[in-house]
Design a protein around this nucleic acid. Structure first.
Lengths: 171, 171
DNA sequence: CCAAGAAACATGAATTTTCATATAAATCTT
DNA sequence: AAGATTTATATGAAAATTCATGTTTCTTGG
């Protein structure tokens, strides 16, 4: 049932890099994302929380880039998270246009738990996948991201990844 | 020693495999996706078209798995594409529950063009990235996908990737 | 200092997506 | 062969997302 016998030649989709990247991302994330939902968060909310554990107090625009979420969408997500007590929004005293986003104590507790879960999940995955710590695949992905961002500077969706920001290699 | 304050050490997000996969996918796709929109398609529609170039006449459920789109959402997308004349839907004579989806002549013309564009874009990307044909990164991604799908059979979103289906390695 | 422009967020309307469930057609059971 | 189950797709209401644009607050040149 799985074999595509109709097509005698190489199929396009399963060999297409952009498909493989998307499929790998989805497949790798599926389990953890459903864990996240179990904890009462949607995926974009989890992304915001995770980013804030790295850069608590970022402004909305920064956070949008980090979390790969379009700005106006992020604003709405943050407002909801604020209402739920997960984050708080304070305008920057130095620049009234900016809104800085902080984890509340409750938000931090949840974020820390989930980050711990994410790390554990990642470890398991990497161990079961190739037995290593993932240095190789991660380096490849980072190189790809860096390549794409340098060589092709403008992003259609106005987001940009953070991967160039890793200050210290994964241990 | 001092771990109470903001973590100046390795940030979590930029070293997290699931982030790197998502970011790489987004970064690699951004340009081509905006080309797709230029041609009047949204990304999910492009995915449907691309899948149909491989497996014209699939039923909705199959297509949903191939294109990584949830079934009820795909149904709606297909209805729109039908209305636009890109695909046609015919119920399977052998099994009246099934709806088979075919590219119309117009749809095929557009699909073929875009697949050609996608191949060209992929070639350029791979050439500029590591000079090769992408065998290495593709093999890694396929291995990861296969690993995830075997080891962790149930997908939260009811989708599954196609990557195991490649009968012929990329040329 | 003022006007013009830019930057940072917010907002609203149109559209999409999600989730649960309805409908319909096969298949299985006994 | 009737009823029960399963499979395939559709549907509706609620919610999220998108896109263009509005508002407010800096910044800068004159």
């Amino acid at each position: 049932m799985n074999k595509t016998i109709e097509n005698p030649k190489a199929p396009f989709v399963p060999n297409y890099l952009l498909y493989l990247l998307a499929a790998a991302s989805e497949a790798a994330s599926a389990r953890f994302h459903s864990h996240v939902r179990t904890r009462g968060l949607r995926v974009p909310e989890w992304r915001v929380m995770a980013c804030l554990t790295d850069t608590d107090g970022s402004m909305v625009t920064e956070l949008a880039r980090y979390a790969m979420i379009e700005q106006s969408r992020l604003t709405k997500i943050i407002i909801q998270m604020d209402a739920r007590g997960l984050v708080s929004r304070r305008s920057d005293p130095k620049d009234g246009r900016r809104v800085r986003v902080f984890l509340t104590p409750q938000g931090r507790t949840l974020a820390d738990e989930l980050v711990a879960d994410a790390r554990a999940h990642e470890l398991e995955l990497l161990k079961s996948f190739q037995g290593g710590d993932g240095t190789e695949i991660k380096d490849t992905l980072r190189a790809l991201i860096r390549h794409l961002e340098s060589d092709q500077p403008d992003q259609a969706d106005g987001t940009a990844s953070l991967a160039g920001n890793a200050e210290i290699a994964d241990s």
